[in-house]
Design a protein around this nucleic acid. Structure first.
Lengths: 261, 261
DNA sequence: CGGGAACTTGATCTCGGTCAATATTGGTGG
DNA sequence: CCACCAATATTGACCGAGATCAAGTTCCCG
């Protein structure tokens, strides 16, 4: 899979393909997801759409790789993406889990992707040429403000994540994680009962700075305490939401939508 | 100390007081620090300056408190500021260390500061009314782009910090910290020999998710290996920079200037 | 100098990592 | 639909890095 390949279908198809992208209530248009008050008008919409094309990835495929030259960033339409950073020796840290409406692959170091993006599920995303988008945003203050808002939101989340990694013990971390995912999926209307994590124990471990075994044991503790139930290998039923939030030290601050990374 | 008090001296004084802020080569004007290519022209400069006033804090004083209603954010002129987040039970995580040229107190949740800002040294900073700044930036695309750049930079740093907290062991973390501070102070031209940390072992611990004792022991290990020397309680001589970066898993990605938080 | 705060050092304990089975699970093909 | 199997998760035993508790020791600032 090579992300530098010209993205997806030809223009006409891309455009019609993008249509539900901006009209379906359950999905999110670029405007809404970036917290603009009003939808983009036709001319602006057309221009913006011309920048992007829809592409697909299967679970475990890479959307973008740290260090590779950046061409475009991605707005997730369907599926979950893990944004991560790795060391030479194999250790890796997932720094964010992103869902439909979010943008990923926006951050660069000197024209190279700063992080790695991996599909946690099958993913459908819209690729936007970074340069084109930036110059477009430069002419549209409200869009630029939306980008600022998204970045601010991501930065607040990162601060919270640092608190989790630096201060919480293993069970607290797992509880926090479950609350976070629950809130995220709820916000994007992809939550079901039970909650489907779409992440293996190993991936959760890479997010929380824990091993597979510790994640498993912490889940077990929460289950034994009657706070959650486990369904299969990927499903979680939150039985005692308040208790779970208490254990996970989840404050009242809401998860904000459409963060970039 | 109440940060909602009208900031600093009267207008005229504030303006003349701000003058060196934009002209001294060792300090940084708002334009340069935000990575604008050109200095702000006179009219814009005047307008922007009208928004801010200079204020001072002593070591350990609070610039802004999480949850308090946000009035203004702060651009550091002198000194070091720790941005942090705390739990009810006293645990706290320093999420960033900021230096002259950086902005702090920019992030809010629903009009309330999202983080806490504490002076690690005596601090001089320029307070800008957030609302006024935002509306000003809305009319000046290059300034908005600079804000985006600063936020992006901070977000990349946060990702790196998550890797440190989640994956590195105690000695690696301390080595990484020393490299980071060294690079930061160098970038802002406040580095000397030896390097003066301006942070107690406890503060370093709150930044790295370690205890005072572990920070001390890790420093001792690095000293015993001949990688650093310790001068007094706050001074560090980097004897083997390459080795230190290797231990701290410091990549080639540069520390970028003027991050916001 | 003198005294209090900060740092270092040592002894012990504990949580989470590591290594090693064992058990589930979910996907596949008969 | 069921049996099988490879992948994943769970569980157990043990170990070690870092936390905790407790003295010393150094440093800095009046």
């Amino acid at each position: 899979m090579n992300f530098t390949v010209p993205p997806g279908p030809p223009r006409g198809v891309a455009f019609s393909g993008l249509k539900p992208f901006v009209s379906l209530p359950c999905d999110r248009c670029i405007g809404r997801s970036l917290n603009l008050c009003k939808p983009l008008d036709d001319a602006r919409l057309r221009r913006l759409l011309a920048l992007g094309g829809i592409r697909h990835w299967k679970r475990h495929e890479t959307l973008f790789r740290a260090g590779d030259p950046m061409a475009s960033f991605f707005k997730i339409r369907k599926g979950i993406v893990a944004v991560s950073r790795a060391l030479d020796d194999g250790r890796r840290q997932i720094v964010a889990v992103r869902a439909p409406g979010d943008c990923v692959g926006y951050l660069d170091n000197d024209g190279k992707y700063a992080f790695e993006g991996e599909a946690l599920t099958d993913v459908e995303a819209c690729a936007f040429d970074r340069r084109g988008f930036d110059s477009f945003a430069a002419d549209h203050p409200d869009l630029a403000a939306a980008v600022t808002e998204a970045l601010s939101s991501a930065l607040k989340q990162s601060g919270q994540a640092m608190l989790v990694l630096g201060q919480l013990n293993s069970t607290e971390r797992v509880a926090h994680f479950l609350c976070e995912i629950d809130a995220l999926y709820r916000d994007r209307h992809i939550a079901g009962t039970p909650l489907v994590l779409h992440m293996s124990r190993g991936e959760i471990g890479d997010y929380l700075g824990l091993t597979i075994e510790t994640v498993s044991r912490s889940m077990g503790k929460l289950k034994k305490r009657g706070i959650i139930g486990l369904v299969g290998t990927d499903g979680v039923v939150v039985l005692e939401g308040a208790k779970l939030r208490e254990v996970g030290k989840v404050g009242t601050a809401p998860v904000s939508a459409a963060a970039a990374f």
